[in-house]
């Protein structure tokens, strides 16, 4: 077996375009999911009991089934209930729903980890519920959940590879296709693995810098 990466590098413009698809789907779905996940956690905490139970069931269903099956259901089953989506919107929607479930659990744990005393103190000085959420819970929670959110975002970066199965033109699909066309599939996959490895290590590194920068805002645990 001979290894020749030149065959793959010759197609660099296509690979860069695919890289861009991977990155924007990753960023958009994760940003959406962070806000939606926070919303779900907040509704579960302050909403009526039936809403809490309903959301909990949904979160458990999403976390208990494979991402691939969810994508198949959305992409191949969707048209039967009038939801015909192209691969990219389907992938984006699937990623967002899947990550929202996980982020909501991170935020739920974050809410629970805030010392009750802080909330009681805020109530004593007459802050409204909205003020308590905005001024006390959100800032304190941001610090608490940041490491888990970084971790989650990195896991989601790797999940984007699965979108190739429903033909989203992202890195794995495009590099795999180039590899097949050039009869250099193993080289293509090796390159792909290195690429993702680099991306994941880079995100982890940036995440650690962000945590170090923000750690000065961390409150002391009582």
């Amino acid at each position: 077996m001979s290894i020749d990466f030149g065959l793959i590098f010759a197609r660099m413009p296509e690979i860069l375009a695919a890289f861009w698809v991977t990155v924007w789907i990753w960023i958009v779905s994760n940003v959406l999911a962070v806000f939606l996940g926070f919303g779900v956690a907040t509704l579960r905490r302050y909403g009526p009991l039936w809403l809490d139970l309903l959301l909990r069931l949904l979160v458990e269903i999403i976390r208990g089934t494979p991402f691939l099956v969810q994508l198949f259901l959305l992409y191949f089953g969707g048209p039967f209930i009038g939801l015909s989506l192209d691969p990219i919107p389907a992938g984006l929607l699937g990623m967002t729903v899947y990550s929202t479930a996980y982020y909501s659990e991170i935020f739920r744990a974050g809410y629970n980890a805030i010392p009750v005393g802080h909330i009681e103190a805020a109530e004593c000085v007459g802050l409204t519920r909205g003020q308590i959420i905005r001024r006390i819970l959100v800032p304190e929670m941001t610090m608490l959940v940041l490491p888990q959110c970084v971790n989650m975002a990195i896991l989601m970066m790797k999940e984007t590879a699965i979108l190739s199965i429903i033909t989203v033109p992202e890195l794995t699909l495009v590099v795999g296709a180039i590899g097949s066309q050039q009869y250099a599939f193993v080289e293509a996959m090796l390159l792909l693995a290195l690429f993702y490895w680099f991306l994941v290590e880079l995100s982890g590194f940036l995440g650690r810098i962000a945590e170090a920068r923000l750690s000065k805002f961390r409150f002391a645990h009582s």
């Binding site: 077996m1 790797k158 999940e159 984007t160 590879a161 699965i162 190739s164 199965i165 794995t172 795999g176 599939f185 193993v186 996959m189 090796l190 792909l192 693995a193 993702y196 490895w197 994941v200 290590e201």
Partner: peptide, 21 residues
């Protein structure tokens, strides 16, 4: 670092194609 840094799908495709090669 390597096995946690590469998507499982890519690992599977790589192993599946590397072994015969």
């Amino acid at each position: 670092s390597l096995f946690r840094g590469v998507p499982l799908l890519v690992q599977l495709l790589l192993i599946y194609n590397l072994l015969p090669a």
